[in-house]
Each structure stands twice: as structure tokens, then as C-alpha cells.
Amino acid sequence: MKRVMKRVMKRALNWIRATILALSMLGAFPAHAVQPDEILADPALETRARDLSRELRCMVCQNQSIDDSDAPLARDLRLLVRERLKAGDTDTQILDFLVARYGDFVLLKPRLTAHTALLWLLPFLILIAGAGALLALRRRQRMAGVSIRLSEEEEARVAEVLKKEGL
């Protein structure tokens, strides 16, 4: 009986110790990205919220979306996004709202504007330019008379030689 009591006491003590530890650590840890209390009851809205969160930058972090970040600002933005979603805004409306408030910096995928046209178009321009350069190079080689195809005369000679060899 005594032993059981001791064990229960020990358990309780351990539990209290852990709780105290947990409490003492409350302030020491940064909050976690996407808290359980933020999650919306409607799964469809929540999915949209998560998708939007991945496109939005936590502006006090280093290249983190608000979905990944544990900064308080990211939490505020996540809550804001969910509030707007509940109010019935479309995704575009929410993004517009945030851009109006925080500027283009908040978008991880910049919109196509005069200033970002080069950013969006360069990959395709480079690809086209590369392909163009290859074509030009090929044409130049052909113009210079370098060809890897045999002329008719050469083909005839090859056929003749092959015939002679009995192939």
C-alpha cells in the first residue's frame, strides 16, 4: 500500500514538475506556425486559407511564407486572411487587400507589372534566344557549305562500293 502511494506521489510530482517546466518555457519559445486555434471549421475555407498563406510573405522573416513562419506578424496575417475568407471575399480580393495594405512585398509570386515584366519574361526570352542562336549557327554552317549529308554523287559512289563488296 505504502509503495503504491509512493509511486502515485512520484508520478504526481513528475507531472507537476513537467507542468512547471512547461510553464516556465512558455515565454522562451517562439510560437508555432499555424496554431490549432487558427484553423477554420469549414475545411474548404481552411484549404483556401492554407493555399493563400503559402503565397504571402512574412515580412519580418527571411524568405518565409506566413504559412511556415512562427513570427507573431505571420499569425496576425493568417488570422486576417481567415477573417476575410469568412467574410466571403474571393482569393483575389484578399490578395488585393493585403497588397493595398503592405505593398507588393507581401506577395511571394510577384504580379506581372511593368517592373516585373523582365522577371517573368526572361526565362522564356532566354530559351527562345538560345534556340534562335542554335538555328542561326546551323544555318551559318549550311551556308558555309558544310553539310553532314552526302551529295548525290557521293551517295552514288557509296552505293557502288557497297555493291562491289556484295553488301
Binding site: 503559402r54 511564407s65 507588393d104 506577395l107 511571394l108 510577384p110 517592373h115 522577371l119
Partner: peptide, 8 residues
Amino acid sequence: KISVGAPF
């Protein structure tokens, strides 16, 4: 200031 992140 703009951001270019994972979605881009």
C-alpha cells in the same frame, strides 16, 4: 521592394 519566393 518585391518578393520572389517559392511560388514564382
